[in-house]
């Protein structure tokens, strides 16, 4: 089994006359926590949608868990969809179902588990995502932003995925909740062996928990490597991006509180 979980090769995206990606390539190794960054409008979320099979790129290939997403049969695609999870920006929880049923949806749809096996699993997922007991019965509208994201993580975890994609996991969260969420993400990688690919704007996430950073700029991968290396890239955008941090804390790192 190859250790490359995701291979993105020469992806080109055009919307009308506008070219968003002009040959984006990178690979993702098993057990890594990788972040994709880039300025607004560089197509980070678009790339994520192309990887998970929601939006077809104009050219290029995406191999996710060994399957060529855009040339796969419906059956192959459905098989690979059970092996990865996705958390959307605001959770995208089903608003008519409570948290427990939201988490149970993938299990009910893709397995034949009986209730006495299924519900303990659902509770385990909710616990692993760090929601306190009693959240199971809550409706999505009763949850705070941070809890909604945790419930979405629990749903993404339902089928024991090998990879989880996160779209801006800490956006809209207060710093304390955001750092706790970073720790949760790190825990999923370290203790459960999940590979995680996330799109973020959050410098603290990058500096404290991420193994590797991919910078997207003018349609290409501008830099790719550990945060310390990427910070040294001689590029205006990268320099000003990381300098915000240096201005405030002199580059000082805040390890998990």
């Amino acid at each position: 089994m190859s250790d490359a979980v995701l291979e993105v090769d020469g992806v080109v995206t055009r919307f009308g006359t506008q070219t968003i990606h002009n040959g984006v390539s990178f690979t993702l190794q098993r057990g890594q926590l990788v972040a994709l960054i880039g300025g607004s409008g560089t197509g980070k979320s678009v790339l994520l949608r192309e990887i998970v099979g929601l939006l077809r790129p104009s050219a290029g290939t995406v191999r996710l868990l060994g399957t060529d997403i855009w040339n796969a049969s419906a059956a192959e695609l459905s098989a690979v969809r059970r092996r990865f999870g996705m958390m959307f920006q605001d959770g995208a929880l089903f608003s008519s179902l409570d948290v427990a049923h939201n988490v149970a949806v993938p299990l009910i749809e893709h397995t034949d588990l009986r209730g006495e096996v299924l519900w303990p699993l659902v509770q385990l997922r909710i616990g692993l995502a760090g929601l306190e007991p009693g959240s199971e019965r809550k409706m999505p509208s009763e949850l705070s932003g941070g809890m909604r994201k945790r419930a979405a993580i629990a749903r993404a975890l339902a089928l024991e995925p090998e990879v989880i994609f996160l779209d801006e996991p800490t956006s809209g969260l207060d710093p304390i909740t955001a750092r706790a969420f970073d720790k949760l993400v790190r825990f999923l990688v370290d203790d459960l062996g999940v590979t995680i690919f996330l799109v973020t704007h959050d410098l603290d996430t990058l500096l404290t928990v991420v193994d590797r950073v991919i910078v997207l700029a003018s349609g290409k991968v501008l830099a790719d490597g550990p945060v310390r290396e990427v910070m040294q890239t001689n590029d205006g955008w990268v320099q000003s991006y990381f300098s915000v941090r240096t201005m405030i804390g002199g580059g000082h790192e805040t390890h998990g509180t």
């Binding site: 209730g115 825990f187 203790d191």
Partner: peptide, 22 residues
């Protein structure tokens, strides 16, 4: 090591898992 970690993580959650009252 990996399996042991999973075992410990789940053991930590065990107290909250009860049967699910429909």
């Amino acid at each position: 090591q990996h399996h042991r970690r999973i075992l410990d993580v789940v053991a930590g959650q065990l107290s909250r898992i009860k049967g699910f009252e429909q």
